[in-house]
Design a binder for these strands. Structure first.
Lengths: 155, 155
DNA sequence: CGCAATCGTCAACCAAGTTGACGATCGGTC
DNA sequence: GACCGATCGTCAACTTGGTTGACGATTGCG
């Protein structure tokens, strides 16, 4: 690639940077023994951190069908990251909650994100990273009516 | 999602922002009649803007196998975006070049990127967007020995 | 009570990757 | 020139992670 750096579309920068973070995350997770983890797990773990969720909630969050979500949860149940229980309030539903192993994984993920972001801060400065975070947040919120949008897994 | 915005990992912001740009790009392309375009086409078009390439070059750039690349090129040849010719220098190879229609598509893509980035500038300011570009570029270059890395398509 | 709506799972299918294989062609060595 | 390992790109079989359709069970409302 010989295009001047100034002309690289932001979309490509985002793609490369995202890929880099995700690859780094999964490499470090594997090094620490978490070697059966898909990128999509991260979004589910985050969603469940503060509150349990239903399959349809997670599907909406992830931006995929409920069938795809159900499959993903299958895997996560099998890996013992989440639990799936029919609540007393509605026998059709399944309540998905973090299992202890899922909490441990979430802690590992957030720790590694901290490391990776810290490495970025070492490269370009803490302020630049904070500004990056701020700018992206503003753009995303402004273009989605002030709310965090669906995350379609991109990897 | 109830997590405070400050705690959203950058990886997620990147994913959302990227998704947003790509979706916006493809929506506008479709509106302008380009309705058979995959996100991966963009990376190929960019790569071919200044120089023809071989299948293995593109595979390395895209971060996928040569078989996957060959298939992708199949589609792009069929859509008349690129041409594929065995060069006189080596009968095993295939030289992939932009066809006229591919050049038109590339121009459309770059125009839309300009629009989208302009909209971001309207939201957060021209300077913030420029800084975003700069920071991401620095991070990416610093972590890849000064060179632009492989882009594995993320969508 | 009846029925439309909702839930989540099963099943079939699809797109875009992966790995293995292979015929054709190079390029280096003898 | 002959031989052979390396390289090229395509074919083929397979996998993965989605999609859509279907459906039995369960709600919630009239």
């Amino acid at each position: 690639m010989s295009d001047p750096v100034d002309e690289v579309p932001i979309a490509r920068l985002l793609a490369v940077a995202y890929r880099q973070l995700i690859d780094g995350l999964h490499r470090r997770l594997a090094e620490r023994g978490w070697d059966d983890v898909r990128p999509a797990y991260g979004f589910v773990l985050l969603a469940l951190r503060d509150a349990d969720a239903k399959v349809t909630d997670l599907a909406a969050l992830l931006g995929v069908s409920k069938q795809a979500t159900s499959k993903l949860i299958d895997q996560m149940v099998e890996g013992r990251y989440v639990t799936r229980v029919a609540p007393a309030s509605d026998a059709r539903q399944r309540t998905i909650a973090l299992a202890p192993r899922g909490r441990e994984l979430l802690a590992a993920v957030e720790g590694i994100y901290g490391e990776l972001e810290g490495e970025w801060a070492n490269l370009v400065g803490t302020q630049a990273v904070a500004r990056l975070h701020k700018t992206l947040t503003e753009v995303v919120l402004a273009t989605h009516g002030g709310a965090f949008p669906t995350v379609r897994p991109t990897g």
